[in-house]
Design a protein around this nucleic acid. Structure first.
Length: 884
RNA sequence: GGGAGCUUAGCUCAGUUGGUUUAGAGCGUCUGCCCUACAAGCAGAGGGUCGGGGGUUCGACUCCCUCAGCUCCCACCA
């Protein structure tokens, strides 16, 4: 059969992916089989493939392909996420590059640009996934902002609003001045940041707005907010500040009078024990303000600049204002001192911009009930996390979940379906028409033009949490009375979810909540958390470091199968992945190995009449057993999501056992013909191996499966069944390993003595070895004869287990060297024996340890004794020789 | 500040209820090989007192305590 001498992944991969698509092999429809469902963690619609995606989607694909070959109706639903903040900021940047400012255009115009951009760049990542071999059901591709899914999101909002779980409130939120939007707590990262602690004098007022000569000192890191102070707060138990109770003080520079209040919140031993309370610019202060009924004065605008309410430094950026006010305070004599200080500051996870705690009106979803039931799903074991340790993290969060701020001050996203009447009252309805209807019940005179829809959009996660439901039946979310359609009824709950642990709360937890709310059923059974992909120095991959390779270039260079294997090689669940290109090289090499092994086998021609050599017959029986055993091992690994262990098992089976051992044993000596039975068995083994490898490396296995079976274009390995583990001969496997060790030892001696593998040798064996395996020894070690008995004279002695072996080495043996080697062995065995005997002579051990353990120690003892005897004899023999 | 986890060969990691483990794998390293499947390969070899200390136990990489180092998550002491 013609087969190119080198495997060409690019050609093969493009060919097969196109055929798979053409035949719609990935497409799934409900039928009588058991479903296996995965929904993709939807990547950002404008994103491009990075190594994290490669890891995640490779794992997904392995699971899906495995399930498909297990005979299940596998469905992997792909799609993308509209990613409001990320996408909007990209569009804003693009417009800015064209000289267009978002503020100069209308919402409609902006959205037009955004959609254009999405159409142009959106979904590139889905094309890229095809290169990786992802077997997604592309006919089911979804986008979180497509009309149907948007309807689902809006309906969901209305649903929770009607249940009284959504409310609008003025709260301190994490304000992101650059994008002019609030972001959720989860999108803020706190980092210890060097800053400055300003100690500032506030003079006591004489009651008429004039300073007395008495003062208190507060310490703050944010002097630019003093103009927004509503009070000074001290701990009521703090004796030092008792004299301040009931007093009023004047804010420096602007001389506004504020009260001194008392609250337990203030730590006596921190700072000066006096806290300036700035309800508009600090969440704790806001709480204190509520308790003490303090006025709220917001002096920072949406861009992070001081506004006119600050009275001074109006229009200055918050950081500029901080520098300037420090100078002003210094001038006015209010600055006592400054000291270096490190404090946690919130940054945007996305852009690293400093987040401003800011008072603003936002929509919230109450979390308490949702979180409690979502916690139970995991705690009571209905949903399994892999690795298990994430349960702790999950529990902690769910027990402390705060209400979810679901509004975002953006345009790209699902607009909040709240409509305001001129009198300020609000109606929440799925459509503008329904809203008008509802509004007229409040005020019959209302016209459509009077109703103003809320300007905000919903947090992206407010759509992605519906994903496992809405991709199948977008009618259901928000309408729990709706009967699930055929797809949803069949595919839900999905089986496994593969995702990164950093979105455990953003997404995983919330999908569980939505599942409980609308389906009364968990959305998936297993969540496999991958690690973060890092470079080989352990650094996160980032554009700025330039340490993030382009997966498509890697695929072009090494092939998708190689990239997949390379990623899986280093990935055990939950551990970070230290990526190194050498792993992908290893994948490429494995492809080469598989390819070449078939080149070898395909070159064999069967000789109908020839009898099967004994060594081939043994090899076939042995490999058949080993194959069964390995399949069993792999199934066990898969069931525990130990994908890389399953991979390693088949990798070694193929390379070490099939190629290096089996093929070498059955390989016809002259390179000409092989008996029929052996050839058939070999081809069948190869076929099974391909099937075992297919979920991991889909392309090369499909190619070879076709080459090996001369199969038609509409056939595919992907619907073949996973080979079943049959019975295996444990005794054969064990004794075969002894034989292999012997072979190893002989080869070692060859190596050491510089004897070519082509030169035949003799071997003496004495002791425990299955003699039926002698042909294996003979062929693998290239022995002319194996003599049962004790060898003597010039030669080298070694022991495998309790088997004593001797290789005659006439004229090639250095007796001194042999002596040293044997003495070292003897020394080791004696020490070992001493250890075992110490154990056995310990009465406590003998009486407490289980009989089997004691028995095995006894066996160790007798084995060691026999080995020692062998070595001693060998040494004696050497001495006799040299004495001659 | 709270919580979780990690520390095993040069590197990355297994080690599944403490005893057939005299601690394994992959990669890398070293030695020898182009023998017609494969040098992206073949055949071998070396390499670890399982982070330190203590304890429980007949027995500890495995359980407990403690110290050290690292990582992650949560947390706005101004």
């Amino acid at each position: 059969m013609d087969i190119s001498s080198k495997y060409n992944p690019a050609e093969v991969e493009d060919k097969w992916y196109a055929r798979w698509l053409k035949n719609r092999f990935f497409h799934s429809e409900p039928d009588s089989r058991e479903p296996y469902t995965i929904v993709i963690p939807p990547p950002n619609v404008t994103g491009i493939l990075h190594m994290g995606h490669v890891l995640n989607n490779t794992l997904n694909d392995v699971l899906v392909r495995k399930a498909r070959m297990d005979g299940r109706n596998a469905c992997w639903v792909p799609g993308t996420d509209h990613a409001s903040i990320a996408t909007e900021s990209k569009v804003v940047a693009k417009l800015a590059a064209e000289g267009i400012s978002k503020e100069d255009i209308t919402r409609e115009e902006f959205l037009k640009y955004a959609w254009e951009w999405k159409e142009e760049h959106g979904g590139i990542i889905l094309q890229q996934l095809r290169k990786l071999g992802a077997s997604c059901d592309w006919d089911r591709t979804r986008f979180t902002m497509e009309p149907e899914l948007t309807k689902a999101v809006v309906a969901t909002f209305c649903h929770f609003y009607r249940k009284g779980m959504i409310y609008r409130g003025v709260r301190i939120v994490n304000w992101y001045p650059k994008a002019l939007t609030a972001i959720s707590d989860d999108e803020v990262i706190h980092k210890d940041t060097k800053s400055c602690f300003y100690h500032i004098k506030y003079y006591i007022s004489d009651g008429k707005g004039k300073p007395t000569d008495k003062y208190l000192v507060i310490a703050t890191t944010r002097p630019e907010t003093i103009m927004a102070d509503a009070a000074i707060c001290v701990n009521p138990a703090d004796e030092r500040h008792r004299w301040l109770h009931g007093k009023k003080v004047l804010i420096p520079l602007i001389d506004r009078e504020i009260p001194v209040i008392e609250d337990d919140y203030v730590e006596m031993d921190f700072g000066t024990g006096c806290l300036k309370v700035t309800p508009a610019h600090d969440a704790h202060d806001y709480e204190i303000g509520l308790r003490h009924n303090l006025p709220v004065l917001d002096i920072i605008d949406d861009h992070g600049c001081l506004n006119e309410k600050a009275r001074i430094l109006v229009g200055e950026d918050r950081f500029e204002a901080r520098k300037k006010i420090a100078a002003l305070l210094e001038e006015s004599g209010n600055l006592v001192k400054t000291e270096d200080y490190v404090s946690p500051i919130g940054y945007s996870e996305r852009t690293n911009a400093v987040i401003e705690p800011k008072l603003s009106a936002q929509w919230f979803l109450k979390m308490q009930d949702l979180a409690a039931s979502a916690l139970a799903e995991v705690e009571e074991g209905r949903i399994r996390f892999i690795p298990d340790k994430y349960r702790n993290t999950y529990r902690h969060w769910m027990e402390n979940a705060r209400d979810w701020c679901i509004s975002r001050q953006l345009w790209w996203g699902q607009r909040i379906p709240a409509y305001y009447l001129p009198d300020g009252s609000v109606v929440v309805e799925e459509t503008a028409e329904k809203a008008l209807e509802a509004a007229r019940k409040i005020n019959p005179g209302i016209t459509a033009a009077d109703l103003k829809q809320d300007e905000d959009v919903l947090d992206t996660w407010f759509s992605s949490w519906l994903w496992p439901i809405s991709v199948f039946d977008p009618e259901l979310p928000g309408h729990p009375e709706h009967k699930p359609n055929r797809d949803l009824a069949y595919y839900y709950p999905t089986n496994d979810l593969v995702t990164a642990p950093d979105i455990i709360f953003f997404w995983v937890a919330r999908m569980i909540m939505a599942g409980g709310e609308f389906m009364n059923e968990k959305p998936f059974s297993n969540v496999y958390f991958t690690g973060l992909v890092r470079d080989n120095l352990g650094r996160k991959m980032s554009k700025t470091l330039g340490n993030s390779p382009d997966p498509l270039e890697l695929i072009a260079k090494y092939g998708a199968d190689a990239v997949r294997l390379g990623m899986l090689l280093c990935s055990s669940a939950g551990n970070d992945i230290l990526y190194d290109e050498s792993q992908i090289e290893q994948g490429r090499n494995f492809c080469g190995k598989i390819w070449n092994s078939w080149r070898l086998v395909s070159g064999w021609t069967a000789d109908e009449g020839a009898a099967q050599p004994e060594v081939a017959s043994i090899a076939v029986r042995w490999f058949d057993s080993l194959l069964s055993k390995t399949i069993e091992t792999m199934e066990d690994h898969y069931s525990k999501f130990r994908i890389n262990d399953a991979l390693m098992a088949v990798y070694r089976l193929f390379w070490d056992d099939f190629c290096s051992t089996y093929l070498e044993l059955v390989k016809p000596a002259g390179g000409k013909t092989v008996d029929k039975a052996t050839l058939e068995a070999t081809v069948e083994f190869f076929d099974k191996l391909l099937k075992l490898i297919h979920p991991i490396m889909p392309f090369i296995t499909e190619e070879l499966w076709h080459l090996a079976g001369r199969r038609g274009e509409t056939e595919t390995i992907m619907f073949e069944r996973t080979p079943a583990a049959g019975e295996y001969d444990a005794h054969l496997l064990e004794s075969f390993d002894v034989a292999r060790e012997c072979v190893n030892a002989v080869r070692g001696i060859r190596n050491q003595k510089g004897i070519s593998s082509r030169e035949e040798m003799s071997l003496y064996v004495e002791g425990d070895l299955d003699r039926s395996l002698l042909p294996v020894l003979k062929k693998a070690a290239n022995l002319s004869e194996i003599i049962d008995g004790e060898g003597s004279g010039a030669g080298s002695q070694f022991v495998v287990g309790t088997l004593k072996c001797f290789v005659p080495l006439e004229g090639k043996v250095d007796m001194g060297e042999e002596r040293t080697k044997l003495e070292a062995e003897l020394e080791y065995q004696r020490k070992f024996l001493a250890g075992v005997r110490a154990k056995l002579s310990n009465q406590a051990f003998v009486s407490h340890a289980p009989a089997a353990v004691v028995e095995s120690e006894r066996k160790k003892e007798s084995d060691a004794l026999s080995r020692i005897a062998s070595f001693e004899e060998a040494l004696k023999a050497i001495d006799n020789q040299s004495n001659k």
